[in-house]
Design a binder for these strands. Sequence first.
DNA 1: CCGGATCCCAGTCGATACTG
DNA 2: CAGTATCGACTGGGATCCGG
Lengths: 137, 137
Amino acid sequence: MQRTIHGRPYEQTEAGPKFRPCAPHDVLARLGDKWTILVVSHLAIAEGHRLRFSELKRGIEGITQRMLTLTLRNLERDGLLTRHCFAEVPPRVEYELTEMGDSLLPALAGFTAWIRDNWPRLEACRRAFDEAQRQDS
Amino acid sequence: MQRTIHGRPYEQTEAGPKFRPCAPHDVLARLGDKWTILVVSHLAIAEGHRLRFSELKRGIEGITQRMLTLTLRNLERDGLLTRHCFAEVPPRVEYELTEMGDSLLPALAGFTAWIRDNWPRLEACRRAFDEAQRQDS
DNA sequence: CCGGATCCCAGTCGATACTG
DNA sequence: CAGTATCGACTGGGATCCGG
């Protein structure tokens, strides 16, 4: 039997509930990596949703050339980003959010609000837990 | 100057936009790990938002004892879960979503909808990209 | 039944150096 | 300017065995 929870489909089997492989996990795993969200955010607030490599690199503190390259490649692979390459000297490459990439951040708005509301409590819980942990040891 | 994009706060500095450390990244990184979402989902559809260790283990295909233990510990640390330990023989431990943990999934509803709508296109983009990649090589 | 302890691998990320 | 190549540290996660 096919049901849904919080917009998420799953099947009720005899052995128990089974979630579909379409799981948010793949997307979350990408978004959860170290730089992706920052890159998308910077592009989202840029005019034309478009920035060149060096602008992104300057804007994101601590990112290395290598990681920026990899992050951009992955976003391009998922169709969230397009690469505009100009054969000039010196070379210039611009990255632009696709329509799909542009719709990603707004879709996260509800979650962002949740984080804003719960972050302090969550951090407090962590500290309390770690504190209790150190007592035992 | 303090601004906001898609509910996400950032500062506009001379050097460019700077996002606050409160970034969703910490939470996303946890949610993006291999099992967290599945555990939370199973608890969310359980009656009383409550399941015991072995029920979770049976319900989540492929998870090992070790990973289930770690995932539950992390959720407990963040205050999304409480552990109810019964000193019986054989021992019994139940895990229950806290109010905060319970509010997490609904907060993700918008994002879940986005995934449902865009997943096919995203997968198609991946395949196309990988295909083009093999041509070049 | 619940989970801690140990070993190991594969993937992620940083640092550095080099190229068109 | 915008990458690629290489090396090494660290870590998430699986397999297995052990203990209360």
